[in-house]
Amino acid sequence: EPELVFKVRVRTKDGRELEIEVSAEDLEKLLEALPDIEEVEIEEVEP
């Protein structure tokens, strides 16, 4: 069974934007590691 992958769009407080694809596990780590995120948009990517 393929692992869930999420497309994550992040905007930081200083206005930088970042778009990455991460696994569910990595997404959890990412959110814990970035306390200064202003906006996060997450969508599931079809395998």
Rank of each mutant, 00 (worst) to 15 (best):
V45T: 08
S23A: 09
L30W: 09
E17T: 14
V5G: 03
R16K: 10
A24K: 11
P35G: 15
R9M: 03
K7F: 04
I42K: 03
K13C: 14
E21P: 03
L30A: 03
P35N: 14
P47H: 10
A33C: 12
E38L: 13
G15L: 01
E21C: 13
L18W: 15
V45E: 04
L34K: 02
L30Q: 01
F6L: 07
V8K: 00
P47Q: 10
E17Y: 15
K13I: 04
R11S: 03
E41Q: 10
V45Q: 08
L34H: 08
P2F: 10
L34M: 10
I37Y: 14
L34F: 12
S23W: 10
L30F: 14
E1Y: 13
V40C: 12
E43N: 10
V8E: 00
E21M: 15
S23N: 10
L27E: 00
L4T: 10
I42F: 07
E28P: 08
E28L: 12
R16N: 06
P47K: 10
E39R: 11
R9K: 10
P35R: 15
E32T: 09
T12G: 04
I42H: 04
V45L: 10
S23L: 06
E39L: 15
V40D: 02
A33W: 14
R11G: 01
L34G: 03
E44I: 15
L4V: 11
F6M: 04
I20G: 02
V45F: 07
K29C: 12
L31S: 02
D26Q: 11
D26L: 07
I42R: 03
E19A: 05
K29I: 04
S23E: 03
K13L: 05
E25C: 09
E28N: 08
D14H: 03
F6W: 05
E46V: 13
E32G: 08
E46Y: 14
E17R: 08
I42N: 02
L4N: 06
D26A: 09
E1T: 13
K13P: 05
A24S: 05
V8P: 00
E38I: 12
G15D: 01
R11Y: 06
L4S: 08
R11W: 07
L4H: 08
L31R: 04
V22W: 01
D36F: 07
R9V: 08
S23M: 06
V22I: 08
V45C: 08
E43R: 11
S23Q: 04
D14T: 04
E28R: 13
L27D: 00
E19V: 14
V8R: 00
E44T: 10
G15R: 01
P35S: 14
E25Y: 10
L18M: 10
L34T: 04
E19M: 12
P47G: 09
P35D: 14
V10E: 00
A24C: 08
D26H: 07
E17I: 15
L31T: 02
E1M: 12
E1S: 14
I20A: 03
R16G: 04
L4W: 06
I42E: 01
K7Q: 02
K29H: 05
E3S: 11
E41Y: 15
E38Y: 13
L18D: 02
E25L: 11
D14K: 04
D36S: 05
V5A: 05
E17K: 08
F6E: 00
E19Q: 09
V10R: 01
R9P: 01
V8H: 00
E17P: 01
V45D: 04
V45W: 11
E38H: 07
E19D: 05
E28A: 13
E32P: 02
L27A: 01
L31G: 01
L18G: 01
D14N: 05
E44F: 13
L27H: 00
G15K: 03
K7L: 09
L18Y: 15
E25V: 10
D14S: 05
V22P: 00
K13G: 03
V45R: 06
V10M: 05
K29V: 04
I37D: 06
R16L: 08
L4P: 09
I20H: 02
L34A: 03
E3I: 13
V22D: 00
L18Q: 04
R9F: 04
K7A: 03
K13R: 08
E39A: 11
P35W: 14
L18R: 04
I20S: 02
E46H: 12
V5E: 01
P47Y: 09
P2Y: 13
V5C: 11
E39V: 15
P2R: 13
K13N: 03
P35H: 14
V8Y: 02
E32K: 09
L31W: 07
V45G: 04
V22L: 07
E32V: 07
V45S: 07
V40P: 02
F6C: 08
P47F: 12
R11I: 09
P47R: 11
L34V: 05
E25K: 14
E21D: 05
E21G: 02
D36Y: 05
F6Q: 01
E44W: 12
E41N: 09
E3C: 13
V8F: 04
K7Y: 04
E43Y: 15
E44N: 08
E44M: 15
E25S: 13
E1P: 12
G15A: 01
L18N: 01
E43T: 13
P2I: 11
E28S: 09
D26I: 04
L30M: 06
T12R: 05
D14Q: 03
K29S: 07
V10K: 00
L18P: 00
I20M: 09
E43W: 15
E3V: 14
V40N: 02
E1G: 12
D26G: 09
L30H: 02
E17S: 08
G15Q: 01
I37A: 10
D36H: 05
L31F: 06
I20C: 10
I20N: 00
A24R: 12
L30P: 00
V8C: 05
R9C: 13
D26T: 05
K7C: 08
P2Q: 09
P2W: 08
E21S: 10
K29L: 07
L31A: 02
P35V: 15
V10W: 14
K13A: 06
K7D: 00
A33F: 12
E44K: 12
I20V: 08
T12K: 04
P47W: 10
R9Y: 06
D14M: 03
E41P: 02
E1H: 12
E43S: 11
A24M: 12
E17D: 06
D36W: 08
P35F: 14
L18S: 02
V40Y: 14
L27N: 00
I37F: 13
S23T: 09
P47D: 07
A24G: 07
L4C: 15
P35C: 12
E19I: 14
R16A: 06
R16C: 12
V8L: 06
E46W: 14
E39S: 14
E46L: 13
V40I: 14
F6G: 00
T12V: 05
V22R: 00
I37H: 11
S23R: 11
E1L: 13
L30T: 05
R11A: 02
K13T: 06
K13D: 03
K13E: 04
L27S: 00
E32W: 10
E38C: 07
L27K: 01
E17C: 13
V40G: 02
L34N: 06
E32S: 10
V10Y: 14
E38T: 08
P2H: 10
L30E: 01
E44L: 15
E32F: 09
E17Q: 10
V22M: 08
E32L: 12
R9H: 06
D36I: 03
E41R: 09
V10L: 09
I20L: 10
D26Y: 07
K7G: 00
E39C: 07
F6T: 01
E19N: 09
E41C: 12
I42Q: 03
L4I: 11
D14P: 00
K7V: 07
E43D: 06
V40T: 04
L31H: 02
V45Y: 09
L27Q: 00
V40A: 06
K7S: 02
E25D: 09
E46P: 09
E44G: 09
D36T: 05
P2D: 06
R9N: 03
F6R: 02
S23C: 06
I20E: 01
E32R: 10
E1C: 09
E21H: 12
E41W: 15
L31Y: 05
E25T: 12
P2K: 10
E25A: 13
E32Y: 09
E41M: 11
V5M: 13
E38N: 06
P2S: 09
P2A: 11
F6V: 05
I37T: 06
E39Y: 15
G15M: 02
E43M: 15
E21V: 15
V45M: 11
E32A: 13
R11Q: 05
L4A: 07
P2G: 10
E3L: 12
A33P: 01
D26C: 06
G15E: 01
E25H: 11
E1I: 11
D14C: 03
V22E: 00
E43Q: 10
E28Y: 12
A33Y: 09
D26V: 05
E25I: 10
F6K: 03
V22F: 02
E28W: 12
E3A: 13
E44Q: 12
I42G: 02
E44A: 13
L31D: 01
E38A: 09
V10H: 01
V10P: 00
L30Y: 07
P35I: 15
L27F: 05
R16V: 08
K29W: 08
E17F: 14
L30R: 01
E39M: 14
V5Y: 13
E41K: 09
E19T: 13
L27M: 03
A24F: 10
E41A: 07
V40H: 03
R16Q: 07
T12F: 15
E32N: 11
E43P: 03
E46M: 11
L34C: 12
P47L: 10
V45A: 07
E3T: 13
E43I: 15
R11L: 08
K7R: 12
E44D: 06
E19K: 08
I42V: 07
D26N: 08
K7N: 03
T12Q: 04
E43C: 12
E46F: 14
E46K: 14
E44R: 14
R9S: 03
